[in-house]
Amino acid sequence: MGILPKSASAFGVTFSHMFKKVVTEEYPEKPVPTAPRYHGRHILNRHPDGLEKCIGCELCAWACPADAIYVSGADNTEEERFSPGERYAGDYQINYARCIFCGLCIEACPTRSLTMSNEYELARDDRRDLIFTKEQLLAPLLPGMEQPPHAMRLGGSEKDYYISGPENPGMSKGAEGRSVEDAPGAGSERRSGGHS
């Protein structure tokens, strides 16, 4: 750099960036996918026949450090059945103005009913719109699912849904991103193996 003065040679750094790859993400037009386990907005999953997985146990609400979840359970009847078993969530709300996306509710959920998606575009101009109701949180009906209330299609008791159902090892297709085949414990040994 003998010829050039120091002040001019510094522009070489700037100039060299002309040939480097652009690091900027063009967010609104081409959003870069998040990490697969990014904590985004929640989903209330369904069983493969469309019944809700949530049993209204309120463990998520108890686990929530920000008190963002409100659950009020209700009783299933034979005429009006929303989930296998006795209870379902009559009302389910998540207040995204409080939720800190820590995932403790997901860990607490005993039926893997509540999971998280990678969706993050949640800003609204009204605080009331940030309270998501059960209708907003419920997963869409996939092919083969039917809008509850309806009778249990996968077996006579809730055990068919949770433990002995070979084609339903407690995972919903799609919403949790895994098909039934590659879900852990869905292999043949589990099918034949004794669940006591």
Partner: peptide
């Protein structure tokens, strides 16, 4: 504009700004 998240990722901030 209310932007949830704890903290919101930069994309979320940009989303809120664009809204």
């Amino acid at each position: 504009m209310y932007l949830p998240g704890c903290p919101p990722r930069p994309e979320m901030l940009m989303d809120a700004i664009l809204k």
